[in-house]
Design a protein around this nucleic acid. Structure first.
Lengths: 232, 232
DNA sequence: TAGTGGTCTAGACCACTAA
DNA sequence: TAGTGGTCTAGACCACTAG
């Protein structure tokens, strides 16, 4: 996995934004400036900026420039950013730490024979905001090419950051399925809601840069105080 | 609004896919072939294909080609495609036809003084699949630059198609806000659900190619039979 | 008017896939 | 090995924004 010019620039700018060096509403250096500074062609700069725009970090305006987008305060599960990178005052608690298991049967998605046989890594997490439980998440990863996954703690409490830094796995795409349901017993227990409270249920399928590797999550979300959104 | 080479090619390919001339799983002509056939540079072809990929119509594979994506059978409200272009056997019924009105107060989003003063165009639609009511949609458009909007019927029953063909307005972006709620009386009546049934509520804000023009929709969706998804 | 992003060209080389 | 998409360059002109 060799870094390209555009992905390198993309990472530099993303870090500038996340670290606050580029504040929301500020204008990035112009495409020509970036090209000159990094010794790359303008088309390559545009490629990097297009990626940042797709991920929701910037907004482009003809004649003005590339503007750092306002930070979205919603629980942005629907975009690719994940949870811990978006919500502040959020905390993660493992109800079940990552462990090896068989895939549940039946499983909502089709699995290849190879994945089926390898079994899965399963975890159950409760996510809270300001101490209030908001989200119960069941996550399934195929037990392929993830050595020692269960024996090392997460980096920064983040599954995606761990996958990226430890295994060079990047999330490319999300497929999602949303329903409003009556809460199951488990959700009632952990989210401390009533049996009559409606609950948001999301089934997510994350595609990664490894073609055969998908990550599956089922989320139960109490949307009475917070809503689920995207900034896409 | 002058059509560009890449948007023209994008439209041609999109039509080929939607009309079935390019079937799901089939491979589009190669970038070089498309470039030669349409007398444009390969970079321009790539621009068009990138847009199609972003909208979920195709998937690119290095060394193989651009593959037409499997048609997503879910009610894809979360992507930009809209409703009528995605779901077959779907029907639209106006509960309230488009008419001029004041903006509701309070309104979930901030409006500029100009928009506020212009008032809005409001409509209420019930959408059914196979004769079963699934979705109640309340839509608000600013009454700016949409002459005679209320006096002409929709093209193909589609708001987006009407905006595109009659007013050259294209949807660029969607911001969404999702909740599971207890149904309101109106939803119970039109969707024929019980008071205890959980209901999915979506607040959508569509951005368009006209900077000051946003479209707002509130959707109430019965997800007991169909779920809401995206193919992003 | 100067500077920005948007579109477009005509090349080049590389990485991957399949026969 | 031939053909595909992925990356990249060095130019050009246009449309839009702001001073």
């Amino acid at each position: 996995m060799k870094p390209t010019h555009h992905s390198r620039l993309q990472q530099i700018l993303k870090n500038d934004i996340l670290s606050g060096k580029q504040k929301e509403g500020s204008v990035l250096p112009s495409e020509n400036e970036l090209a000159a500074k990094h010794n790359i062609a303008r088309a390559t700069v545009r490629h990097a900026l297009a990626s940042l725009e797709k991920e929701g970090y910037i907004e482009k305006r003809q004649g003005k420039g590339s503007i750092v987008k306002a930070y979205n305060k919603k629980i942005s599960i629907l975009n690719i950013k994940g949870f811990s990178s978006v919500v502040s005052n959020a905390s993660n608690q493992f109800i079940l730490k990552p462990h090896y298991a068989a895939w549940p049967k039946p499983f909502a998605y089709n699995l290849s024979k190879e994945m089926e046989d390898a079994g899965c890594i399963f975890m159950k997490r409760l996510r809270s905001i300001n101490g209030e439980p908001i989200l119960l998440e069941l996550t399934y990863l195929p037990n392929i090419g993830l050595p020692d996954f269960c024996f090392n703690p997460f980096i920064n409490d983040s599954l995606f950051e761990t996958l990226s830094k430890r295994y060079l796995i990047e999330i490319k795409d999300v497929e999602q399925d949303i329903r409003a349901i009556k809460p199951c017993d488990e959700a009632i227990k952990y989210l401390k809601i009533k049996k009559s409270d409606p609950l948001l249920c999301l089934n997510l399928k994350y595609a990664t840069n490894r073609l055969e590797l998908n990550i599956y999550s089922t989320l139960y979300c109490d949307t009475q105080k917070y809503s689920v959104g995207n900034s896409d």
